[in-house]
Design a protein around this nucleic acid. Structure first.
Lengths: 153, 153
DNA sequence: ATAATATTGTTGCAAATGCAACATGTAATT
DNA sequence: AATTACATGTTGCATTTGCAACAATATTAT
C-alpha cells in the first residue's frame, strides 16, 4: 500500500516511460535507417502479412488506431505499392480486403534484417528468457486491466 | 531469434498494448469518477507535489510532454485553482515556479482515495511483489533502451 | 415485403500534440 | 563593456489522432 501512492511511483508511469522510450527508439531507427516507411506503417504491413484476408476494422483494433487513421495508413501503404486492396466477400458481405505485394514482402524482409542487429544489442543485457518473461507478465497484467475495464467500473 | 520476428510478437507491441489498456482504464476512471481533472493534469499536479520548486521544463520531461503542452496543462491547473505560479529565482535566474494549493492538496487526496480501491482490485490477482518485480524489470529494460538511444545508433 | 439492425469504410471536424521560432533575461567570454 | 552562449517559457503552425456522422450493403425481424 506504500505502492502507487504517487503518480511517479505507479506502474502506470513506468509503463508510460518504457513505452515512450521504446517508441522514440523505434521512430529514430525507422527514420535513420531510411526504411521508407514509418513505424506504424510497418506495424500495419506486418500485421496484414500475419493475417491474410483481414478487414480494415479488425486491423484497426490490432494496431490500436481508429478506423479513420487505419484507412489513411492503408492509403499510404497502397500508394507506396506495398499492399493491394481489393473487394472480396466476407460472410456474404462486400469487404475491401488487402494483401502484401512483392515489394511489400521485400520491405518487410529488409526491415527485419536491419532491425535484427538492434534487437540483438538489447538482448545482450536481456536474455531471451527475460524478455519472454517480461512479455508474459505484461500480457497477464494487461488481461487483468481489460477485465476491469469490461466490468465498466 | 524466433523472438520478435513479427511486430505482433514483439516486446514493442506488448508495451503498446499494455500501456494503451492502462491509459484507457485511467481515462475511464477519471471521467467516470467525476474527479474534475484529466489524467495528465493529475500526473502534473502530483509530480509538482512530489517536486516542490520544479521548473516548467523539468516538469515537461517528467510528464513526457513538450514545453508548449506543459504550459497549457499548467494554465488549466492554475485556472482550476489547484496550483499557483509565481516568479522565483533559480541559479540567480528568474523562473516561474509553482506550488500546489490547498485545493490542489485536497484534490490529490481525493484522487488517491478514490483510486485506491481499483489499485487494490488489480492487486487481487497481482501481488505487491509481482507488481514491484514488473516495475523493476520495466525500469531495467528502459535504461537499456535509453542507452541505445543515447548511442545515437 | 418492409423495416429495423448490423457491418464495413469514408469524410469532416475538433482536440491533442509537437516542432520551431521567438522573447526575455542571465551567465560567460572576450 | 560588449558580445556570445545558455536557460526558460510562450506563440504560431503543422501534424496526428480520434470521434461522430454518413453512405453503402447485408442480415434479421416483423
Amino acid at each position: 500500500m506504500a505502492k502507487a501512492q504517487h503518480y511517479i511511483d505507479s506502474i502506470y508511469y513506468d509503463l508510460e516511460l518504457t513505452s515512450h522510450a521504446m517508441k522514440a527508439l523505434g521512430n529514430h531507427l525507422f527514420e535513420h535507417l531510411n526504411l521508407g516507411l514509418t513505424p506504424v506503417e510497418h506495424a500495419a504491413l506486418d500485421t496484414i502479412f500475419c493475417n491474410t484476408g483481414i478487414c480494415q476494422r479488425d486491423l484497426a483494433k490490432l494496431i490500436l488506431k481508429d478506423r479513420a487513421n487505419t484507412g489513411r495508413i492503408l492509403a499510404s501503404l497502397e500508394e507506396k505499392g506495398l499492399i493491394t486492396r481489393f473487394v472480396d466477400v466476407k460472410n456474404n458481405r462486400l469487404v475491401r480486403k488487402m494483401g502484401v505485394t512483392e515489394k511489400g514482402h521485400k520491405v518487410l524482409e529488409q526491415v527485419r534484417k536491419k532491425i535484427e542487429a538492434y534487437v540483438k544489442s538489447i538482448s545482450v543485457q536481456f536474455s531471451e528468457e527475460e524478455i519472454d518473461q517480461l512479455q508474459q507478465t505484461l500480457r497477464k497484467f494487461r488481461e487483468n486491466i481489460l477485465e476491469l475495464a469490461n466490468m465498466k467500473i
